[in-house]
């Protein structure tokens, strides 16, 4: 075991004849595709795709077909359901979609910028109290959202901000994990002499960050953006607590409410399913396009793009 753990350079150069033949055999075996491991992976893939495939079929059924025809058999009512969903309370559904794009999109952009700026300063500046600030921010990673939700609501209520866009946007801008990642990124991708050179030329610090450092950190910033986008898009509790007016709901809270009403009016179920399908389409497309940025090493804290 110990011999295996340390890479033996010499042995690789001069393998004993016995080992050479074994290695040759192993090479041969390794090239052969394994049906078992490929099969297990494909089963896992099918499990993960199954609800998505199902919702495509289910969203094309009308109210009676949903509970009467075979569950994966598609029908012809997809467009009718989308039209009906669009007409539901004057396009409330599309309003929810736009709200979600606003909360997750704008929220994640601002959050990424704040994280990048903080991470850059923590990585590239030397100032008194630096490690203290970093440690305190880092503790925020472990703070469970639960102890924040109620007081955030009460504080924003006192400021008269509950039931506004701000109440969902503002609390989600600070991301200790984003700052942590940005610090690693800045340390790895922004050379100190580039900053020094810009300073000698008389560039202002914010100019250096916005025009020189941030573009160098860009691949990492995309990852931070994605993380924060998913975190906001996934955060159900905060908008659920903060918002009362359903014109401000993100799609998650909206569909949850629609499902609740469906318990007494099953006709809404087809709308819920069409809505679920439409809501995952943009995100799935975004995921597929940006897949290469999801290379996350939590333990090293590094993100390898």
């Amino acid at each position: 075991m110990t011999a295996l753990a340390t890479p033996p350079k010499n042995r690789r150069a001069n393998p004993s004849p016995r080992k050479a033949s074994k290695a040759g055999k192993a090479d041969f075996i390794r090239e052969k595709p394994s049906y078992v491991s490929t099969g297990i992976l494909i089963l896992g893939a099918l499990y993960c795709l199954f609800p998505v495939i199902w919702v495509v079929a289910a969203a094309s059924k009308d109210g009676t077909e949903l509970f009467s025809t075979f569950t994966l058999a598609p029908s012809t009512h997809l467009w009718d359901n989308i039209v009906e969903l669009t007409e539901y309370r004057d396009g409330l559904f599309w309003r929810w979609m736009l709200n979600t794009a606003l909360y997750a999109g704008v929220g994640a952009i601002v959050s990424t910028w704040v994280s990048a700026l903080s991470g850059y300063v923590l990585a590239k500046f030397d100032f008194p109290g630096k490690s203290g600030v970093f440690k305190v921010l880092l503790m925020g990673v472990l703070v469970p959202g639960v102890i924040l939700a109620i007081p955030q609501y009460l504080m924003l209520a006192q400021a008269g901000l509950t039931n506004t866009y701000w109440s969902v946007l503002l609390p989600q801008i600070i991301s200790p994990y984003g700052i942590y990642l940005a610090r690693i990124y800045a340390a790895a991708s922004v050379p100190g002499d580039v900053i020094e050179a810009a300073r000698t030329e008389g560039a202002k610090e914010m100019y250096i960050f916005n025009r020189i450092a941030a573009p160098m950190m860009l691949p990492g910033l995309v990852t931070i953006f994605l993380f924060q986008f998913v975190a906001i898009w996934n955060n159900f509790m905060l908008p659920y607590i903060m918002l009362g007016d359903d014109h401000l709901f993100p799609i998650t809270v909206g569909l949850n409410g629609l499902l609740n009403q469906g318990a007494s009016a099953p006709a809404l179920y087809t709308l819920v399913l069409a809505g679920a399908l439409l809501s995952i389409v943009p995100l799935v497309i975004m995921f597929l396009l940006l897949q290469r940025y999801w290379r996350v090493d939590l333990a090293a804290g590094a993100v390898k793009a």
Partner: peptide
């Protein structure tokens, strides 16, 4: 020795794009 790796990787990662409310639904 595994084949169809990138298809499986994408498919298995895909649910992460679906928020918990939608997947519960």
């Amino acid at each position: 020795r595994t084949r169809a790796g990138s298809f499986s990787r994408t498919a298995i990662f895909l649910p992460y794009a679906v928020p918990a409310v939608i997947s519960s639904l």
